[in-house]
Design a protein around this nucleic acid. Sequence first.
DNA 1: CCTACCGATCGGTAGG
DNA 2: CCTACCGATCGGTAGG
Lengths: 210, 210
Amino acid sequence: MRQRILDESARLFSQDGIASTSMRQIAKECGIQAGSLYYHFKSKDEIIAEVLELGISFVADAVKAELEKLDGSAGFRELFHAAVLAHLNAFFLHRNYTATHIREFKQAPASTRIKNIKTRDAYEQLWADLFAKGVSEGVLATDIDLRFARLLLLSSMNWALEWFKPKGQRSFDELTVTIVRIFLDGCTARAASTQEDSPAAGSKQVVHSN
Amino acid sequence: MRQRILDESARLFSQDGIASTSMRQIAKECGIQAGSLYYHFKSKDEIIAEVLELGISFVADAVKAELEKLDGSAGFRELFHAAVLAHLNAFFLHRNYTATHIREFKQAPASTRIKNIKTRDAYEQLWADLFAKGVSEGVLATDIDLRFARLLLLSSMNWALEWFKPKGQRSFDELTVTIVRIFLDGCTARAASTQEDSPAAGSKQVVHSN
DNA sequence: CCTACCGATCGGTAGG
DNA sequence: CCTACCGATCGGTAGG
């Protein structure tokens, strides 16, 4: 029942917002009485805190696992592609949790945010490390503010939940290809482009700009 | 007083969320009694609707005016740079309104959203037209899903309010240069790059990838 | 623009 | 996990 409460809460939070979701609504969706929620959780804030934490850790864990699976042999482009795909997949798989985290974090009670900050920072650091690898491999430009670049990338991936309607695994691959292409190579047309919309792994993508 | 009510509402909405902001808080910030708000507005929803509408129209009007000022002589790169800068400037100048629009739109009462949709669609169309111009000039690639590209660009600009701390006009110019650079040319290092972090106009930026 | 008030709903608790 | 309830606060209104 505890898991059920979290799932229904995440769904309602992402749909109506934390403040507009009452304990009575959560209870109703779970098929129990409002007072019974306090047998499983001390307070509404405790539910909020747990949903927020899962919203970031689902994604962070998935991306971390994917990178560790590839590390060693893989180059920056392959790792980058895999990280974007893993982020988007986990993001939409646990949509109710991640949407709550993205939309409601700033307005959540301060006490519930504290527990999240460590997880958030660690996840940002994972991307910072990846970008650093891109620089040391000579793939990423050094005359760009890579902190800006990192935040712009994460912003655009996270905000995708407002407009992206996934239709099967293929659509994730396509979105990933587009994001990787734009972020690394830009939208500008090139003479004699040999760009290919290749499969998920994407690591064989032709680098046509140097 | 009407304007004052809107300003304080936008500030509280963007800070705490619409649902967590009570009419009594708004009244207190305006230095009047709660009941007096209903002399100026029929309901809370009417305040919400007006704040949301201003949140999008401030930006749309600014970008539209900037493009019309330049149109005729200007090429795509110059227009694109000017549009991004105008968007960011207006976005942060009216931060309380735009942040409310971005963060709260989906959770606002359905009746308050209807009035916004036309303004939103028109603004999206403005960018779609600009991108079409980029294609017809041969600047933008045709093998990228430009709808994705457009939404990713707007996502990353809008989400900048979560992390970008403007420090004077110069910081807007820098962010604009970074966004334009990444979006058009990507983050990849190029052999013999001659990239310049040039001033606001930016239209003389060297295209070094073809 | 204020005073005084309405019914509804909120998060949470005692006792079982 | 339920019943019955608490004080606080909500959006909104009547009458001035």
